[in-house]
Structure formats: C-alpha cells, structure tokens
Design a protein around this nucleic acid. Structure first.
Length: 598
RNA sequence: GGCGCCGUAGGCAAGUGGCUAAGCCAGCUGAUUGCAAAUCAGCCACCCCCGGUUCGAGUCCGGGCGGCGCCUCCA
C-alpha cells in the first residue's frame, strides 16, 4: 500500500468502517476501499446469459457478492447492487430456434430458473436486475455517443468499436493489441481491426431485432453492461464484479466503451471470483470442454502412462454430470450447505466441487445446527430469534467472563479476516472457534443439567450466541431454520415401522399384550393402521396427518425404549437404537428425555 | 508464444516477515455416557525444490519443477 491511513487513528469502527481492503484486478493489489460517494457503494455484477439452465458456476458470484453486500451494510455502508440479465444473444437465438419458442419465452423460462436458484442459495440482496432487452434506448444512445466521439464506426449495418482509437485498451489484462491472437471471426471483413468488437449487429432474417439509426439489429455482448451500469450506478461507480473468465474480453471491452465514452474511469475496483471445477485436472464447470463434450467420451486420446484407471475417472465425472441440474442439487442438499461450502474457500480461489466435498462441509455445518438446538433447550430461545447487531455496537458487554473474552477475540479476528478482501474462509474458521467456546461454556457451567429455568445463568451464553448470530448473518448463514423437503421422510418411516413391528412381534411372542396393544393404539393416533396376518403384520399410513407419521412414531419408539431401560431390559433398548440407526435416525439420551435426529 | 493465478498435514483450507503455522473432515487417545450419539480435552505439518534479502521468511526477490486460467462463447 502506498497510502498511509491516518483515518484509522480515531474511532476504530465508526461507520462506515474504513479498514476494508479489496483486491483490484486492475492494479493487481489489495487497495483500501475508498468509495466514490462517502458511505455509499455501487456494485455491478455481470449476471448470466439466460439461454440454458443455471449451473453451480453461476452461483459463485451471486453468493460472494450477496455476502459482500451484507458485510458492507453491516459495516455502515449504503449499498446498491445490480445484476444484469442478458436476454438477447446468439445462443439465445439458436436455442429458442431449436425449441421452436420465442427468444423472449426462452429467456423468461431460464431467468425464472436462475432466480429460483438464487433464492435457494439465500441470495436476496440484489437491488436491481435490468434486462438488456428493456434497456434498448440506453444502449442505442451509448453507441451513438461512441460514434459521435470517433471511437466507433458503422459497417454494413453493424457498428464496431475501434480499438485502435483507444490508447488505454488492454489495461485490465495487461496486454497490447499486438499480443492478441484472434483472427476477428467471420465478421473480420467488415472490421478495421480483427480486435474490433461489435456494439450493434444487424439483424438476419427471422431474428429478433430492434430499430436503430443503423437499421434493424440487436446489441453486441458488452455494450449492455456499459449502458445499464451507467444509467443505474453512474459513469463511475465503485465495484464491478464477475467471474475470472469474464476479464477478457468482456470487461476489457466494457472499460474501453465506457471510458472512451465518458473520459473517466468506469469502476474503481474490479473484483473477479474464481471458477468451479470438478477435479484438479478437469476444466471449469460449464466450460468449453463440458459444453463440447460428446455424450460418451469427453476425453481425448491422452496416453495414460501411470497406473490410473481412466474408466474410473470417467465414471466419476459422468456420475456427477448425470446427478441432475442445479435445482435438483439444491433441493437435495439444501442451499445453505452449498453456500457454506462455497464460502469456506476464498472467493478468488478455484473451488473443487463434488458431492464428497459438499458432504464434508455439511458435517461441519451440522455441528452448528446441533449447537443451536442445544442453546434452545437451555434458554428456551431460538437461535434464529436472537437479535442481530451492527458492527459498531455488537452484542457484547464488557468482557467480564473468560468465555466472553474469547468471543471478543474471535469476533475481532473475524472482522479482520473479512476486512481483508472478504476472507470468508478465515471468517468461518472463527465461527467454529465461537461454537467451541459456547459448547465449552455449556459443559463447564453445566447449563444443560435440567435446571434451565434460571435466566441469570444464561446471560453469558446468550451474549456469546448473539455474537455468533451477528457474525454469521453477515455471511448470509443461519438466517432462518433449515426446512427439510417433504417426502424425504418416507424411507425413514418405513425403517421405523419395521422396527416397531419387530418390537410388537417380540412383545406378542412373550405374551406381553399390554405392550403390543399400546403399540397398536399409539400407531392409531399417528394415523397408521395395523392388520395382523398369518406370519406378518401389514401397515397402512394413509390416514397420517400432513407432516407424515414420523414424529408420532418416534414418540412411541422413544417411549418404548424408555420403558425397556427402566426395566433394565438393555437388550431391547439397544435393539431399538440399532434399528433406528439402520433407518437413518440417531438417538441422543439427555437428562430426562431422548432426542432423535435424521 | 503473450498475460495472469496457484503449490501449507491423509483430504479440504486460513495465514497482512517475528510468541506454540487458524479451522473443517478423516484417524488416534482421554473425560463424559448402561451402550451409543453429541460435547469437551489432547495427538496428528521439516509450509514443492534451490538460491538471495533480513537479526528473523510459509509470508519478500530470483531461478527451477508441477498444476490451472485467459488470449474464441463462458459465472
């Protein structure tokens, strides 16, 4: 850093916070965040071209920028976040033609898919989502201005940006025009330089088009971002983001257009997120190799000298591919898992994405959910109802308790990590530290001894929990209880029913008809009817309430096990635990009660 | 060829030159539990290699080796 920071000498965290640093692709260094307007941040993130269903890779940018907005807001900034939707493009035209629907219909369908996936990931901080087709006026005006200033020219109904006129061209990616290799594509004949790029494309027969001073046509890929960011955020705004793969040519060309048009910087900070891959050797998800891959054999004929089994690797890949779309993955895993998984790694890193990796993250995530239940058992308060605090106030009073001192220190490290280019990986490490401190507090002070009614004993716990909530909320985590998709319980029900019927059969064999009848009665309450037939018992749960019979069944099972334990019949108690484990349900014995979890 | 990024334990992953190199998963030991789960405590890293700068380098510089991205549509 070349700048000194005298502003840090006064209040450490007077809003807005000034200690935040951001990695800027333009300078290739981390820079202190100094916004165009004091206390305000304008962010423009390049959104998707909606020609196909979203994949995981499309979620990385939205998740990190959703987090960035939350954190900046928490730190005292007023943030405006824009994500564009590109709904006119060659691929949209081709794809809608293949499906025999209009481009607008295809775009609408895929936009809805994108939006629902964003919602599933907890991305809800976006302020504006402009569509290219709704900003045609701004786009045409922008192109006209570039022509008027001599940076663009018309050619046979197309309009091109004249890169030779832009002395700054290549500054984002540190390359010169000479270093570029492109041939100019199939429109090269109409361009002055092969590196000139289209601002406006004349229409071809049957294509959607808009009227313009150059005849009917549609915008080039880059111009919409220049036009829409200008009209919403201004000629110079704070942060422009996107995937690493957009740096060139997309963002380089945006800079060329906007800065030649306005004679001033387009964005102060260019932030680029890393890309997802399936394995260290594979290309990025949704990348060329995946898009071009034949259905059968994606690999070339690279000789395998080592002892690897290439078929095994292929199996793995095709299995992940065949696992279904993003919407299915989200439904199956839950958005919070994926979000947590993505946030564990720094946003600029490449992330290796696999079912195994998500499962591993989920194991860690579950320990937080268990902690929340523990807190609720003790204090009677849901973690999700605890207040969130802003950065200046926090929720800690004077740290007069060793645990609160630890919490305080972890909070400071969390903030330092996030201030340092939004290091969510380091920040999550501190969340685990907080969880451990809270669990230890509960253990050490025996808060879980059944005397949960004394609020005075909960003060320290609640302050610590509140801090955990305050910090995790800035990551968009643990905002609300995770709801399980209905229907997933069916196989658990089957497993539990098998166990219950075994128990009842055993009771009947011992002539313990009191227990057998109790089981039948309890099942009746749960909406499960039994029919005894020769050698086996049938069951029918069609009368069960909306949520399914599982909760009632488990109440019964827990009761049966308690009775067995009271009678020192540990064989039966253990049989019950084992049966439930087989059914995918685990039991936890606590003072006075037994809790079950899937 | 040009422009960039990366290489930290069995796996993943933080680490802004300086006390014992975060954290997660897996594994091992102990406390606790009728058993189990959970929780807590403890164990588990010569930071890819070789030079250099420095009192001191995982961290800075140079050179290797290895991996990846972009230079064509891409989040």
């Amino acid at each position: 850093m070349s700048t000194t920071t005298p502003q840090r000498t006064a209040k450490p965290t007077a809003p807005p916070v000034t200690s935040i640093r951001v990695y800027n692709t333009l300078s290739r260094t981390k820079e202190p965040l100094a916004t165009v307007k004091p206390g305000q941040v304008g962010i423009y993130l390049c959104g998707p071209t909606v020609y196909d269903k979203a994949h995981m890779g499309h979620m990385v940018g939205p998740v990190i920028f959703d987090t960035i907005k939350r954190y900046l807001t928490y730190s005292g900034y007023k943030v405006t976040w824009v994500v564009n939707i590109t709904d006119v493009d060659d691929k949209l035209i081709r794809k809608s033609g293949e499906r025999g629907i209009s481009m607008a219909a295809l775009a609408e369908e895929m936009t809805q898919d994108y939006l629902s996936n964003l919602a599933g990931m907890g991305v809800d901080q976006i302020d504006r989502m402009p569509k290219a087709t709704e900003c045609m006026g701004d786009i045409i005006k922008f192109v006209e201005a570039l022509i008027a200033r001599g940076f663009a020219y018309e050619s046979a109904g197309d309009v091109y940006f004249d890169v030779a006129k832009d002395s700054g061209y290549g500054k984002l990616t540190n390359r010169t025009l000479d270093a570029l290799q492109g041939e100019g594509g199939d429109t090269a004949a109409r361009k002055r330089s092969p590196h000139d790029f289209a601002l406006w494309k004349r229409t071809k027969p049957g294509e959607p088009s808009w009227d313009s001073p150059w005849g009917a046509g549609r915008p080039g890929w880059h111009i919409e971002c220049s036009a829409m960011s200008k009209s919403i955020l201004g000629e110079t705004f704070d942060i422009h983001g996107g995937g690493l793969d957009l740096i060139f040519p997309h963002h380089e060309n945006e800079i060329a257009q906007s800065e030649c048009c306005h004679g001033k910087p387009m964005a102060k900070y260019w932030m680029h997120n890393g890309l997802l891959k399936r394995s260290a050797e594979a290309g990025k998800i949704g990348g060329r190799s995946e898009r071009d891959a034949a259905p059968t054999q994606p690999n070339g004929v690279m000789a395998e000298a080592g002892g690897y089994d290439p078929n095994a690797a292929d199996d793995k890949e095709s299995r992940s591919k065949g696992a279904g779309g993003l919407a299915e993955l989200l439904a199956q895993q839950g958005g919070e898992r994926i979000r947590f998984f993505l946030l564990r790694t720094h946003y600029r890193s490449t992330v290796l994405f696999s079912d195994e990796a998500i499962a591993e993250a989920a194991t860690g995530l579950d320990s937080f959910y268990r902690l929340f239940k523990r807190i609720e058992r003790i204090t009677g308060r849901s973690f999700y109802d605890l207040p969130t605090a802003d950065r200046t106030s926090g929720c800690l009073e004077k740290a007069n308790h060793p645990t609160l001192k630890q919490v305080q220190e972890a909070r400071e490290r969390f903030l330092a990590a996030m201030d340092d280019d939004f290091n969510t990986g380091g920040a999550i490490g501190e969340l685990f530290e907080l969880a451990r401190a809270i669990n230890k507090l509960i253990d050490d002070e025996k808060l879980e001894d059944g005397q949960a009614s004394d609020p005075a004993r909960h003060a320290t716990l609640l302050q610590a929990a509140c801090t955990l909530r305050e910090l995790s909320a800035t990551l968009g985590l643990f905002l609300q209880p995770v709801v399980r998709a209905a229907g997933a319980d069916d196989k658990h029900v089957a497993g539990v029913m098998q166990l219950i019927l075994e128990l009842r059969a055993a009771a009947r064999a011992k002539k313990d008809f009191a227990t057998a009848d109790k089981i039948r009665a309890a099942l009746g309450t749960a909406g499960v009817a039994l029919t005894d037939r020769a050698g086996e018992t049938e069951w029918d749960a069609s009368a069960a309430p909306a949520g399914g019979p599982l909760a009632e069944l488990m109440k019964l099972v827990v009761e049966l096990r308690a009775a067995a334990r009271a009678a020192k019949d540990f064989a039966t108690a253990d049989q019950i635990r084992a049966g439930l484990t087989t059914a995918g349900i685990t039991l936890a014995d606590r003072a006075g009660e037994t809790e079950w979890t899937i």
